[in-house]
């Protein structure tokens, strides 16, 4: 298959991708919604969106033979953006509705917020830019993003966290490592800062923005 210019938005049958498609288009990115492993493997960038439960997400990815594809595009250093469940699924295990093995691209456990908080964590909250990253270009530190989730990522390696949000605990709102960026918040529902994040991802895909922070600038 020819390599195309269109970013692949992975459609694994999990709800509505329309808002991601609209936001991506509005940010000036060319994208295609697909569950075709060949299209995804050959895309210059991949977005893994998602709403719903962890177990369903993994079942859907498995039934469409997409688990290996996600691992391969990450291993190939293809720019990759996970959103919400598309972030949680990258970790080792999710405690949502039992214990479900996930993609294990990064070590970590997906845990439920503690009782006593209003759950889901639904609404606009600040994302603190705790580590530098090109994806933050033009986005204010502490900008509000829209969240709706009941579980959060507890990563095995704290240094992958580039954006953090406080809700009872301080949890990872955005993680990044290598060519991967993943957000717990929904940039497609986060007005101007969210659209900027998609635009920045587009620039990373086109190579006009680096995909990560040079090692010399990494914050220890």
């Amino acid at each position: 298959m020819m390599r195309t210019d269109a970013i692949a938005i992975v459609d694994y049958g999990a709800g509505n991708l329309r808002s991601v498609v609209h936001a991506v288009a509005h940010a000036g990115l060319q994208a295609v919604v697909t569950d075709d492993p060949a299209v995804i493997r050959n895309a210059p960038g991949v977005i893994l969106p998602g709403v719903g439960a962890a177990a369903d997400t993994m079942a859907n990815l498995r039934s469409r033979d997409l688990v290996g594809v996600v691992h391969d595009v990450i291993a190939a250093s293809t720019p990759f953006l996970g959103v919400c469940m598309g972030m949680q699924a990258l970790f080792t295990v999710s405690e949502e509705g039992g214990r479900h093995g996930c993609l294990d691209a990064f070590p970590g456990t997906v845990r439920r917020f503690s009782p006593g908080l209003s759950i889901p964590h639904m609404g606009w909250n600040r994302v603190h830019q705790v580590r530098p990253h090109p994806i933050w270009d033009g986005i204010d530190d502490g900008a509000h993003f829209y969240f709706v989730h009941s579980y959060f990522v507890d990563p095995g390696d704290e240094t992958i966290v580039i954006g953090a949000t406080d809700y009872g605990v301080r949890f990872p709102a955005v993680i990044a490592r290598g060519s991967v960026v993943a957000t717990q918040c929904h940039p497609e529902k986060s007005a101007a800062p969210g659209l900027r994040l998609y635009a920045n991802f587009g620039r990373i895909v086109r190579g006009t923005l680096p995909s990560g922070v040079p090692a010399s600038e990494e914050v220890a």
Partner: peptide, 8 residues
């Protein structure tokens, strides 16, 4: 309407 909105 949904097309005009980048909020929930």
């Amino acid at each position: 309407c949904a097309r005009e909105l980048f909020i929930p």
